[in-house]
């Protein structure tokens, strides 16, 4: 069953095309990653999905029904964590959750508020004014509010943006738990690593268009096709930079210092063992050998429309032509 579906969804703000002919599909039980750089139209898409703004064209369906501003029966099945922590600072966390519990007509509101606060580890801070909370605490309180009415679909817009690594891990665990309970999760983010660790499927939005949609593993490989390797030696090895650049699976190699080498490997397969073998064969003994991931934003900066097309072809994922022929 499709929990989220959009059909030719478009939104114009005057001359600005925020969302362009978006056809999205999220199935029940999925953790769907909605990727795109800042300004790609992710938040606008979420607003359209939730009926907060009206589409210029097309329609959005939740649980098979069209969404309107007053579709309360549908909204009752959705929990949302927005991009910003828009919380009433003059309330305590407890008052805040009880307010939303009443709004959603949650049965046994106090018990439920206690449960969700415990889940996000804020129970002991419940009687403090939210105005004094840190960004991370506010993010967790938002999550607690979104979970309060036990929704079938959880929509999260940049949930990790304000969290430290500890908080990110906590939220990730909560999401995994929820997913195991059968909840569908729609996670919008521009951080590829976070999406990769959490999501099964992803859709990539660029300039309002869904340029790619598919499973995470293939996409991840394509979006970050080159392996960046840093190697550190105990003493300068007898290796010429030019000779390294001659190797077929090396895209580039450069000595940063006499004992530090930076290598970019081809993406056709994993050449890390080839590099290690080559180094040891030439008498170079690495003290450290590590690979570095690039962020999604970096990847977007480098990605072109053609490699997304090839990505689509090679991975068998759906691909839509991003109009105007510009780089992605």
């Amino acid at each position: 069953m499709e929990v989220i579906r959009t059909e030719h969804l478009s939104k114009h703000y005057g001359p600005l095309l925020a969302v362009d002919d978006l056809n999205l599909s999220v199935k029940q039980g999925e953790i769907y990653g909605f990727l795109g750089p800042n300004g790609a139209g992710k938040s606008t898409t979420i607003s359209l999905l939730l009926g907060l703004i009206r589409p210029t064209q097309g329609r959005a369906l939740l649980f098979g029904e069209p969404v309107r501003e007053d579709s309360f029966a549908l909204k009752r099945r959705v929990g949302v964590v927005g991009e910003y922590q828009n919380i009433y600072g003059e309330m305590t966390a407890w008052e805040y959750l009880l307010f939303f519990a009443r709004l959603y007509r949650v049965k046994e509101p106090r018990k439920r508020a206690g449960e969700v606060l415990a889940a996000v580890r804020l129970l002991d801070r419940r009687n403090e004014l939210v105005g004094g909370y840190s960004k991370g605490m506010l993010q967790k309180l938002s999550l607690a509010r979104a979970l309060l009415h036990a929704p079938d679909l959880l929509v999260l817009d940049e949930p990790a943006s304000s969290l430290d690594p500890y908080g990110i891990r906590e939220v990730r665990e909560i999401l995994k738990d929820l997913n195991e309970q059968g909840k569908t999760i729609f996670l919008s983010s521009h951080i590829l690593s976070e999406v990769e660790r959490t999501c099964y499927r992803v859709g990539i939005l660029q300039k309002g268009r869904l340029v790619a949609q598919g499973d995470m593993a293939g996409l991840r490989r394509r979006l970050s096709p080159e392996m960046h390797i840093n190697v550190e030696f105990a003493m300068p090895p007898p290796l010429e930079e030019a000779a390294l650049n001659q190797l077929p699976w090396v895209k580039s190699a450069r000595w940063e210092t006499p004992v530090q080498l930076r290598v970019i490997l081809s993406a056709d397969q994993d050449h890390r063992s080839d590099l290690l073998r080559h180094l040891t064969e030439h008498g170079a003994v690495p003290l450290e050998f590590n690979s570095r991931q690039i962020s999604l934003e970096e990847a977007f900066m480098e990605i072109t429309e053609s490699n997304l097309a090839s990505l689509a072809a090679s991975e068998g994922i759906s691909y839509q032509q991003a109009g105007r022929g510009e780089g992605l």
């Binding site: 907060l52 007053d70 929990g79 927005g82 939303f100 709004l103």
Partner: peptide
């Protein structure tokens, strides 16, 4: 301006 109204509209609140 602060977006707290948007949070209400996530739920059962509409314009009316």
């Amino acid at each position: 301006e602060r977006g707290t109204a948007e949070v209400l509209f996530y739920g059962p609140v509409d314009s009316i």
